[in-house]
Amino acid sequence: MNQNLAQFIFSGTTTGAIYALIALGFCIVENSMKIVNFAQGDFLTLGGMFMFSMLYALHLSILPAIVLSVLAVALIGAAMERFALRLAKSKETVVLVFITIGASIFIRGGIKLIWGKSPKSLPYFSGAHPIDLLGARILPQSLWVIGGTIAVFLALHHFFHHTKQGKAMKAVAYDPKAAALMGINVEAMMMLSLALAGGVGAVAGILIIPITTMTFDMGVMLGLKGFAAAVLGGYGDVMGAVIGGLLLGLLESLGAGLISSTYKDVIAFVVLLLVLFLRPRGILGKEEWERV
């Protein structure tokens, strides 16, 4: 039983790390445009697919393949801001959010056209031999996923709290007009945030394609889980995204292992709703005061 528990916790941490990574992508866009970017899950799929092509079609070695894949998806993210969101005549949240849903459908259509419907897979980065840890067996790839999430989290935390660019981005989210008056290039900041979100999404895709294999519509469910994680932690908070992701992953894995594997998603979503009813702004979210 104890051994099982350790196993559940480790596998939960791995899925949780993936959710956290996706949640971080949602977080970046929230911190510049105050919208939910529903194409985040498709950035992940794109990352995995590009990686696949870089390795098998262009025969690159791993490192340049990773760099190029991340850049490619970042470029697509920037293009989405430049050619869709920026052109929008209405800047209302609902309209912008639904433009990202349109973009998500568009990207998925493109992926299906280019890479087809069959699942794509890659070998593990560092072998398939599981490591024994506290009586649980974990794949080395899980460590890559967890390490990657920690690295992205630290980088984003530094970016938003300790760099001028990151603070400028948050200023844009807070009040675009005031930010523009302070000399911040608002549109460039928004484009940068979508490029960053694309890059983070690509990293997630590259890290998980050896574990899950990749199909064109994979991003839908993973994107929703990432969104749920971000909401659970407190939307827009970098730390909250990680906490929410880990919590959701652990909930699913423990729910599946200890209660019922068919209802693991139901358990996770019910708990999510209950948390929201008790804390309407997520775990780390602070109550916002409305000025009248």
Binding site: F98, G102, S104, I105, F106, R108, G109, G110, K112
Partner: peptide, 10 residues
């Protein structure tokens, strides 16, 4: 069709 649907939608 998905590509065009997404484009019209946007």
């Amino acid at each position: 069709k998905d590509l065009i649907y997404g484009a019209i939608f946007m």
